Amino acid sequence: MRPTSPSRALRLTGAVAAACLVAGCAVAPDLAEDSASDDGVPLPATEGYQPLTVYLAVAEAEAVPGTSGRPFGCGDLLVPVQTVPTDTEDEADTALDFLFADERGWHGDPSLWNAVFDVRESLIPTGHRREGDVEIFTFTGTVTPENECTAERIRAQLQATAA
């Protein structure tokens, strides 16, 4: 028996897919053996990847109607934001790294603010350990916020993201 040519295999696959669509059946995406984009290029493996949640701030008065967030500080909302899917063993460390590695500060329109952006040069995460049910993060450096509201934004973002 001679090997099936790639074009014949594609035609057979297309015919089976068409038959499934006509018959009203489909294969669940997580059950498919081969992952490929529409152009046949293999997709990267996604097992183990998941988005992380980081928290950004917005003045409650400037938030888009329907924005979900927790009120805090000086009339601000702490808004959960999902990152791109990431493969990591320590979600809290990676989420905090995301805040410190941010190179823009403002995100979206209307904007959500990463207050950690202002201190990322002077506050450096140095470690993370667990003591019982408590996660302890350590930092070196100095935080000199403009005012009490900015200090509260930084604290709230770090605590909520680490949690």
Rank of each mutant, 00 (worst) to 15 (best):
P3Q: 04
P3L: 09
P3K: 03
P3I: 02
T4Q: 09
T4A: 08
T4C: 05
T4M: 11
S5M: 05
S5N: 08
P6W: 02
S7R: 12
S7C: 04
S7V: 12
S7P: 00
S7W: 10
S7D: 10
R8I: 11
R8M: 13
R8G: 05
R8V: 11
R8F: 11
R8N: 06
A9M: 09
A9Q: 11
A9L: 14
L10N: 04
L10K: 06
L10S: 06
L10D: 11
L10T: 07
R11G: 00
R11M: 13
R11H: 15
R11Q: 10
R11A: 13
R11S: 07
R11L: 09
R11N: 04
L12P: 00
L12H: 10
L12Y: 10
L12N: 07
L12D: 08
L12V: 14
T13H: 05
T13P: 00
T13W: 06
T13Q: 14
G14R: 09
G14M: 08
A15M: 09
A15P: 00
A15I: 04
A15H: 03
V16I: 14
V16L: 15
V16T: 10
A17F: 08
A18S: 06
A18V: 02
A18L: 06
A19N: 03
A19H: 08
A19Q: 07
A19E: 12
C20Q: 12
C20N: 11
C20H: 06
C20R: 14
L21R: 11
L21E: 04
L21K: 01
L21H: 03
L21P: 00
V22L: 05
V22C: 01
V22G: 01
A23G: 02
A23D: 07
A23V: 04
A23E: 07
G24R: 01
G24K: 00
G24Q: 02
G24S: 01
C25T: 13
C25L: 07
C25H: 09
C25W: 13
C25E: 08
A26D: 08
A26N: 06
A26Y: 06
A26K: 08
V27C: 06
V27D: 07
V27S: 07
A28C: 07
A28G: 03
A28N: 07
A28S: 10
P29R: 04
P29A: 08
P29V: 01
P29H: 04
P29S: 10
D30P: 00
D30A: 12
D30N: 07
D30Y: 13
D30E: 14
L31V: 06
L31I: 05
L31P: 00
A32C: 15
A32V: 12
A32N: 13
A32F: 02
E33A: 15
E33S: 14
D34H: 11
D34N: 12
D34G: 08
S35K: 15
S35E: 15
S35I: 12
S35N: 15
A36L: 13
S37R: 14
S37I: 01
D38W: 10
D38S: 14
D38V: 10
D38Y: 04
D39V: 02
D39A: 10
G40W: 00
G40H: 01
G40E: 02
G40F: 00
V41T: 14
V41H: 06
V41F: 02
V41A: 09
P42G: 04
P42L: 05
P42A: 11
P42T: 05
L43N: 03
L43S: 07
L43A: 06
L43C: 09
P44Q: 09
P44S: 10
P44E: 06
